[in-house]
Amino acid sequence: MNLLNVIWAEMKKSHRHNFNNRLMYFSLFVWPVIQFVDSYYAFKPFNLGQDSPLSRFVPVEKLGLFLITGCLAYIFFWSLVQSAWMMGYEREQGTLEIILLTPAPRTLVMFSRAAANLLEAVWLFSIFAVLTILFMGGLHVAHWWLIPIAVVILMLSAIVWGGFLNTIFLFSRDAGFLYTIFEAPMAFFSGVRMPVMAFPLWAKMIAYAFPLTFVLNILRSIVLDGKNLSAIFQPLLELFLILLCLIIASFILVRYAEKHAKETGNLTLF
């Protein structure tokens, strides 16, 4: 019950606080759409004919689907980075201190923030993505009930990732720097715009550090390759383990951050 109460509180707050400015949808809709177009055209200089080497990884006619699913999953993860940035605002404004003054469970607050922001952040681009997918055609799904499962997996992973980012941003002053480290490489290495399978080993190693890589793998297996549940069992398990690690890390980090703040009177760690 307390969980729902905190989520509800965060939802009401972030709705009024983060989304009262319609300009927000530039970052949540206009930019992603332009970036999707950009990622599509970035392949144009290459041989995209029937004999394209790309078809070893993605059928050329499904490149559009490949990219839009990548962008869709990415926007789930990206939107939460923006909400994590608000942590910096809360620190400056002193409201973070007031949150620490309450007895509300801290890690819960971190994950609630992520959950509370997600739906409102992604709905517009999701509609765009679904329309684009329907327009392009070429979906290949084994069972239709796998699609809601894919959506749930995507949402849960994004929330865990968002909660983890909230925790990290909780005690850093320089959010831009963390963004550069945690977020930008994700866009490039986790297979949003390129098939991870094509990567050399070093790039694969970076790719598999991000949960988005696993999520995209599962999502595309379901909607592009028509795989059934047993075929995606192993990547699902891997994803589950990664998410578990992130949750545990968040717990530890939040406790550490509060302990540190209590000792130094300062939330900033690095």
Partner: peptide, 16 residues
């Protein structure tokens, strides 16, 4: 890096 990976590893140097 994006260009590098695409060029060498995905398209094996084949251009349009």
């Amino acid at each position: 890096i994006f260009a590098f990976l695409s060029y060498h590893f995905i398209f094996q140097g084949e251009l349009n």
